[in-house]
Amino acid sequence: MRFWQLASFGGFLLLLPLILGLNDYYIFLTTLILLYTVIVMAWYFIGGLAGQLDLGAGAYHGLGAVVTGYLMIYYNVSGWIGLVLGGLAAMGVAFIVGFPSFRFGLKEVWYALASLGLVLILQKIFLLWTDVAGPLERYIPFREFDPLYMRARAKWFYYYITLGLLLITFYLAHRAKRGKLGLYLVSIRDEEEAAEMLGIDTRRYKLVALLTYSFITAVTGGIYASMVGFYHPILFDGWIGIQTATIAIVGGLGHFWGPPLTSVILLSIAEYLRINLGGTIPGLHQVIFGAILITAILFKPAGIGPYLESLIEKVRKR
C-alpha cells in the first residue's frame, strides 16, 4: 500500500512535464514553485529543527546565483561545478555570520533581523562590485541543450534538476529528523542549557544546521540563474527569506511534511493569482496572498501540517 502510494506519487512528479503538455511556461512556473519548496525544506534544518528564525535565504540564494553564473560566463565552468562552489561560498558566508551570532547568543527577533540585514548588505555589496555583478544583468551564454554545461533552452531540463535537488533535500531532512542530528537540534531548540549539560556543543550543531541550509539554498540560486539565463544583485532578495519563514510557520513549525506541502499549495495559489490578477492590478495577488497567510496563522496557529495530522488521526479512528 505504502509502496504504491509512493510509486504513483513519484511517477506523477516524473511525468509532470508531459502532463503539462511540455508547455515551457507551465513547466517554468512549476519549477519555480519546486525551487522555493526546496528552500522551505532546507529551512527545516535551521528553523524547524534548530528553532532559529532565519530570514537570510535570499543571501544564500543570491550567492549561489552569482557564483554559478559568474563562473559559467567568465570561466566557461560547468554549472554543476558552479552549484557546488556556490554552495561552498554560501557556507563560508554563513559561517562568518553564524559563528559570532551563535557565539554571542543571538536569538529570536534579533537573529531574524540580523539574517535579514545580511541579505541587504550582500545585495548592495554586489551592486557596488561591478567587476562581478553591478546594476546590469549578466547574461549566461545560450546553449540549445548542453547538459554538461548545465544550460538548455527547454525548461523541463531544469525541472528535473530541481526535482532531484528536492528529493535529495527531502532525504537529508528525513535522515536528520530520524537520527542523532535531529534529536540534538530539537533538544537545543527546546531547552538550550539542558542540551548543553547533556554534552551537546550547541553552537556547533546550530552551525551544522545553518551550513546545510545555506548550501542547499545556494544551489537553488545557481539553478535559478541558469534557468532564467542571467544573474543580478536583485536576487539577494529579502523577500525570499520572509516568504520561506512564513510558509514554514503556516505549514507548522518543526513539522516535517506540513511546510513543503503548504509551500506547494500556497505558491500555486500565488502563481495562479499572479497570472490572473497580476496583469490588471500589480500587487493585488500579493495582497490576497498576504491575507491568506495572516488568516492561516491567526486561525491555525499550530500550522496546517499538525492540523491535517489530527484530521487524519480522527478519520482513522472511525
Binding site: S187, D190, E191, E193, A194
Partner: peptide, 11 residues
C-alpha cells in the same frame, strides 16, 4: 539535574 526542571517539551 536542574533546580527548575528543563524538559524538552516536544520530545
Amino acid at each position: 539535574c536542574f533546580q527548575i526542571v528543563k524538559p524538552f517539551p516536544s520530545l
